[in-house]
Design a binder for these strands. Structure first.
Lengths: 326, 326
DNA sequence: AACACCTATCGAATCGTTTCGACTAGTATG
DNA sequence: CATACTAGTCGAAACGATTCGATAGGTGTT
């Protein structure tokens, strides 16, 4: 108690929190004492214990930082959330690799001083993580996953969104189409996007699952789809813009022109300043999604129930789709 | 005290921490009681108060998440750090926009339950942030900035590294060269890289400062350098790979071929799977840098002094540099 | 002059752990 | 059989704040 120097701890607390009425003379005296004692303000941990709030929100990734944040879309969403958390004075505690090393991640999660948790980039994942968090009685918000009654969600309707681009491609006359999905077919958004394609193309759809979410993985998956020159699809719909770039690279290396020989579409609508061709894609409001999710956290913290939020996505027609060659 | 149900709090603590000797029967009983009471393990905040450790490290950015993590190099470094923190069971609390909204960021920093802080992507920044952190007597680690006696650093020698590529370009015969720097000429690494170029090219160097760290900013800065067809530089050295891509885009839009009409170099040595041409650049060990910095944090936490770490960078010659046209 | 009211300050309880030292039974050792 | 040791359990003292209610003066009203 650095504060015994001058006055009671209660008064010192009042000085630092700026709550109660304090005489100017006293305030000055306390501040001076703190200064001379090298006291740097109230201990946040002790304050948290008393107030029951730590000002920290867990942000949970299924995989590594590298894998997750390689994608500009994820960075955009995270930034949207960060802006709001910033305003609210909440910090973001990054918890990664929840899928892999679940023991460690689980232990870390239970030991983390948090007021709420946001499932940032997750699949259905391990039930135990959700259970452990739910046991703490804190607000839980997800960006579409994992699906759980205890988690409030903020997401687009992936099935409807994917349908937009699927119908655009179908409308151009494509019938044999390929699909490059993100890793984890079980993940709700992947499953929904896949379902939309099945809705539109039925059994003419060929699916390849990317091993990771990067450009290279998209290229690799596309090669598999394009390997057989005879049954080659005339269009490939990727589950993300990054994967779509990979698809276009695969096409190029096989001597296929986009869109003349192969139509390619993405998903997310992110800015790709280094890519020359405007991509046909489905734009979803990334920054807004993060921000809205963060506000759901705020509401949860305020004790308000909070209903799921469904955002709108829209089709962006670029220069990577065209009618199939005859 | 959910634990009054069965035994003393001390014994319950022993059960959950797994430290002291506990009879199997007792353990079972305590666990059962916890289960039935919906008790999800010890409160992390209270535990932190007692032990003096929160298991959280602040990771500080000067600017926004979006601005910082747009660059794959930063993501790589962050991932390197995250892997080590993960192993150590430490969480990362992201604190952004320290430069802009310093009031808010400062308040947030003082109220954050942290055991150490890492200046992740910072310039010299505001003194008050460092002071406030230093007052808490916690280990402070930086990735080259801000320079301060209280901060242990882990970085390459930017001046030496930039000199590698500068000498490569000079060796090819270039004399009129341009430079595209990262934002903030005051930042130590920017200043050092600039100094290296002055060392090599003297007053033949023309400098343009990018407004942000993205591709577009590189393009914009390069346009300024290439505007005058008469005194046009024959080579442009960018302070990051992303900026270099922007420079190449500017060149292309002006009808200049790389490397025939213009040599371009980058800095960082990051993987650009979407870019067709291998870039001449200086590769620095990004992941390792993050990891080593995280280990410095660990050492600091263990009470060991910790000396600055200097990593090595090396020249990577790609296909974007050639002798100047005559 | 009695009363109410507001300002400034303080005491004490509380938040939920961890940890140290003490205590009790058993069990092994001499 | 006395002594020493071990395993298992518990009580109580921190950790460092916030906050409620009490108290003591000072000021204003009637």
């Amino acid at each position: 108690m650095a504060r015994l120097a001058e006055v009671s701890t209660s008064t010192a607390s009042l000085v630092f929190s700026g709550k109660g009425p304090v005489a100017d003379a006293t305030r000055t005296r306390v501040l001076a004492a703190a200064e001379s004692l090298g006291y740097g303000g109230p201990d946040p941990v002790a304050a948290s214990l008393r107030t029951g709030r730590s000002g920290v929100v867990a942000v949970i990734f299924d995989s590594s930082i590298q894998e997750t944040l390689h994608d500009p879309y994820q960075v955009l969403v995270l930034d949207g959330a960060a802006s709001v958390f910033d305003e609210l004075g909440l910090g973001m505690l990054i918890i990664g690799r929840v899928r892999d090393e679940s023991e460690r991640a689980l232990a870390q999660l239970s030991a983390a001083p948090i007021d709420a948790a946001m499932f940032f980039s997750c699949g259905q994942g391990r039930r135990s993580v959700v259970d452990s968090l739910a046991a703490r009685q804190i607000p839980l918000v997800g960006l579409g996953a994992p699906r759980d009654p205890r988690i409030v969600q903020c997401d687009i309707d992936s099935r409807v969104a994917m349908r937009l681009v699927a119908e655009h491609v179908a409308g151009l006359g494509h019938q044999r189409v390929g699909e490059v999905t993100l890793p984890d077919l079980q993940a709700p958004h992947t499953a929904a996007r896949h379902a939309a394609l099945v809705d539109v193309f039925g059994s003419d759809l060929v699916t390849a699952e990317a091993t990771l979410s990067g450009v290279e993985s998209g290229e690799q998956a596309a090669r598999a789809l394009l390997a057989d020159p005879v049954h080659r699809p005339t269009a490939i719909l990727a589950h993300s813009d990054l994967l779509a770039v990979g698809v276009m690279q695969a096409a190029e290396s096989l001597g296929l022109r986009v869109p003349e020989d192969l139509s390619v579409t993405g998903f997310d609508g992110v800015d790709l300043p280094w890519w020359p061709t405007p991509l046909t894609t489905v734009a979803q409001p990334g920054s807004d999604k993060g921000a809205r999710a963060a506000r759901l956290v705020r509401d949860g913290l305020a004790g308000e129930p909070g209903r799921d939020v469904v955002l709108q996505a829209h089709l962006v027609v670029g220069a990577t789709t065209a009618p199939p060659a005859v």
